Structures are given as C-alpha cells and as structure tokens.
Simulated scan of single mutants.
Amino acid sequence: MILILSARNDASVEMVVPELVERGAEFLWWDPGGYPADSTISSRLTGGSWRHTLRVEGREYDCSQFTTIWNRHPTHPHAPESVTDDNHRKYVEKIAAILLHGWEHTVESRWLPARTSDIVRTQNKLVNLGVAAALGFTTPDTLVTNDDEDLIPFWEDAGGELIAKVVEYVEFRIDGEDHSHYTTPVTRRRLTDRHRLALAPAILQPYVKKAVELRITVVGDQVFPAEIHSQGSRATRYDYRHYEQTFSTYAIHRLPDDVERRCLELTASLGLHYGCIDMIVTPEGEYVYLEINPAGQWGWIEATTGLPIAAAIADWLIAAEPHR
C-alpha cells in the first residue's frame, strides 16, 4: 500500500492519483496537518522494533504495510479547535511535530523523495551546491555572508554584475500581505543599503548570462529536462518565477549525456529519489548548475511540455507493491 503525505488541495497529487488508479494501486492520501486534531498514531516497541498504527477517518492502518511513502507537501500539525489558548496550541503542535519526526525515522519504507529531515538538509544551497561542484558541475562563484564589508569587493570582482538570492524560501508577511524574495540584481544604488545584510545572510553570485533556463525533474532513474525561455522579457530576466506563466515559454530539452549522468549522480549522492534541478545554458552553450529542490513543483512543466512526470512518479510509487 502507498501512503501519500500531502495537503488535501495538492494539485500535483491530483495529477498522480488517476495514474495510480489506472494501475490498480491501493493508496492512502493523508495530510499530517490533521494530526493530532483528527487522526491518531500509536507506536509500540515490541520484539525489538516499533509497530505504528495510524487511525484516520475511521480506519486503522498498520504502517508496516506501507511499501512506499510519497513525502509530497504535508502541512504542519494542527491542534484541535478545542485548544484555544495560543501557548497551549504551540505546545500541542510542537509535541506533534516531534512525534511525527520520530515516526518518519522508524517507519521502514521507500521514501520519495526522502524523509523530511533529509529534504531539509539537501535543499540547503550550501549543501547541494557543494555536492554539485564536487561531481563536476559548473557552478557560479558563490559568496554566502551577512558581512556587508565582504559585499563590495565581491561586487567589484563581478564587474558590478552581481545577483542576490535568499538562503532559503521563508514565508513572511508585511502589513498583512504575503511577500516573497526573488533573485535580484545588486545595483550600485543597492550598495548604499548593504548594512541590511547584517540582518540575514544572502547568497551572492556573479550574474550568469542565459540563452535558456532549464528545469530538470529527476524521478528515480528517469530525467525530464524542460527549457524555460525567460529572456524575452525584462520581468523574467533574473528570475522567471516572478511572472513564469505570463512571459515565459517552455519546451522539451535534450541534455548532453554527461550532464544527464551528473543529474542522476547528484540526486543519488544526496540520498534522494526525486528532485528538481535548476540550471542555465549560457549563450556559449555551457551548462551552469544553480540548485536542486528535493520537493519542487513539476505540474506546470508537464502541463506546458507534455513530459510524462506524473506517470513516472506513479510507476516509482508502485514498483514495490506486492502484485508487482
């Protein structure tokens, strides 16, 4: 049986579910965000190993029966509505998160892409950039710092063509509005605000000119590369995500064999069975690695290019099912 851990409104899961149904797979779609509000977990150490029982929506599941777990996009644990005190809610949800962390690490199963702690570790850009460089990918010269005195010489070394990125995407709100940080050019005028760097570290890299950008989705031993034609508009020149569905066009890309091999080596070296790799192809045809997102989105790539990513995920999930 397959266990899918994700929010109930996850469009990517909705794309894979019909593939699983077509293949006759048995699966449970459960969001751990419903724990402990409307689900329970009982764990008993017996015979030298843990036995976990999940009860959700009136049904009971022996977790040892889950051959594969798709750790897609689960939400954070939520306390029952009856817990109204804020401090009490924080306590209940913190304890629930600790239990789920232990539950993940004591459920023996195949995980796609990996357990949550491994996802957090591998999506850290310092980690995956270092591994990519060691595997032979071309990577930009990179400075990660919160020391503004390091900024100016690095900016000068880049000839004033420098971009800044966040170390990790973190949700935040200003005056009640959601905000996101995108890749931003560090202009001479922005240098006057460099003291703000002390508040949080940033990733700094020389700007890499782009012919096209690539979104390379790896599922098991399959590689699905897509081109993102982001340079046709100033709005998407530095970061296509800002207006990705408005100005960019997409196409299937043919990777050189050595680049495809490194993509597979990278996910394997990081202990992942899935990942979305972002790369740049320069006007000279050089492939430059940027990052890997071990839980990255792929639905929009399949919708725009027809690459059969949902089918590949379904095939990976059912590979260990007994009838296979």
Rank of each mutant, 00 (worst) to 15 (best):
I163K: 04
L54E: 12
L272I: 01
Y182C: 10
G159Q: 00
P294F: 02
A319T: 13
W29E: 00
P18N: 11
R190P: 04
S39R: 00
G58S: 12
A198C: 09
R173P: 04
L290P: 02
A132M: 02
C263E: 09
E177V: 14
V56S: 13
T267M: 07
I301L: 14
I69D: 08
T122M: 09
T68D: 06
E156F: 01
A311V: 09
P225G: 05
E302S: 13
E260G: 03
D239A: 11
I174V: 15
D150H: 09
R262P: 01
V167T: 13
V212T: 13
P322G: 03
R215K: 11
A320R: 13
V16G: 05
E93Q: 15
G275Q: 00
L100H: 01
P206F: 10
F154N: 07
G285S: 08
H195K: 14
V120D: 11
N124Q: 09
W103E: 09
R196P: 02
E60R: 15
L20Q: 03
T68N: 07
A314L: 04
F224T: 09
I228G: 00
A132C: 02
D239E: 12
D118Y: 06
S64H: 11
F247M: 03
Y207N: 10
R8L: 12
R115V: 04
S248Y: 04
H179R: 12
F224I: 10
P18E: 05
D38P: 02
W111E: 02
W30G: 10
T246S: 11
T184H: 07
E108N: 11
T142D: 02
P206L: 06
G48P: 03
R115E: 03
I119W: 02
G48I: 00
I280A: 08
T304P: 00
S43A: 12
H242G: 08
A226I: 10
L3M: 15
G275R: 00
T139L: 04
R215T: 06
W70M: 10
R115S: 01
R188W: 07
